[in-house]
Nucleic acid binder design. Structure first.
Ligand SMILES: [Mn+2]
Ligand SMILES: [Mn+2]
Ligand SMILES: [Zn+2]
Ligand SMILES: [Zn+2]
Lengths: 132, 132
DNA sequence: CAGCTATTTAGAACCATTATAAACTATATA
DNA sequence: TATATAGTTTATAATGGTTCTAAATAGCTG
């Protein structure tokens, strides 16, 4: 029930697969970061039926387009997503490839003074790489 | 002659290929951003002999390890490199995938207040995504 | 239910990147 | 200068994340 309206209101049919992916992504105490492979594993662990990898990709991209997920820019061969869609910044642990949310109070407001003609700022993202 | 010492001092043999890649990367008025494919094209345009793609990858990674190049984190299927190895930030034009350097004065100093036990900050990078 | 469109799926294709291993080259040493 | 050795280049294959395809299935509207 919980996610049916969310999906319908977005013009997405509330299929069994999408509802199950919603459970995994959004029915959590905390937000989290994931790659597609990590999400695939999480889904396998939590549900009995199988969801094809293609559907996982399709759904993640659909949710991203609707603004329910964000992509986080990092140097990796895999794409990183975030269920925390608020404006926030990240630590990136180079050792294990894990992201950690930074509170805005940990970074402070960032004011970009330069403008590019005809362009709007869509997002401002700080990535703090961590090493040992 | 110009890059022979640079390479030798880094423990890299100054091969014909590496010297030619140095010319393309570093013998320029301005620093620039590139993907491997763009670099491959630049090399083709500037030199007569052929340098294999494998050598271009090898050399770029060798130079990155030595600190002569930096990788810039963006959401793209291709890896972006920068010949500007100073600490600086970027505009990322989503329309054409081009990076633009931001001066530090355009962003202001960023002071990360949070610490992670046993970890050091390696870099702080701001990515400002631009849309129309 | 009927009809229509959206969605799911297995598998193929794509493509940036990395691995392989044989040929070649820079360099140190005799 | 010749030789030995480790480093480098290269064509090519392999890898692996992501996207595409097209047929089967499922949601939705009348
Ligand atoms: Mn993607
Ligand atoms: Mn790389
Ligand atoms: Zn986050
Ligand atoms: Zn730059």
């Amino acid at each position: 029930m919980k996610y049916i309206d969310k999906l319908r209101n977005s013009g997405l049919r509330p299929t069994k697969q999408r509802l199950q992916i919603c459970e995994v992504l959004f029915n959590t105490e905390r937000t989290f970061h994931f790659t597609i492979n990590e999400l695939e594993q999480k889904i396998k662990d939590r549900i009995d039926n199988k969801i094809s990898l293609a559907t996982i990709y399709n759904t993640v991209h659909a949710f991203e387009k609707k603004g329910y997920l964000k992509q986080i820019p990092v140097n990796s061969n895999q794409t990183y997503f975030d269920t925390n869609i608020t404006d926030h910044h990240h630590f990136y642990n180079l050792k294990d490839g894990k992201l950690i949310d930074l509170e805005n109070s940990d970074v402070g407001p960032i004011n970009i003074k330069r403008k590019i003609d005809g362009k709007k700022i869509k997002s401002i993202e700080v990535l703090v790489k961590l090493e040992d």
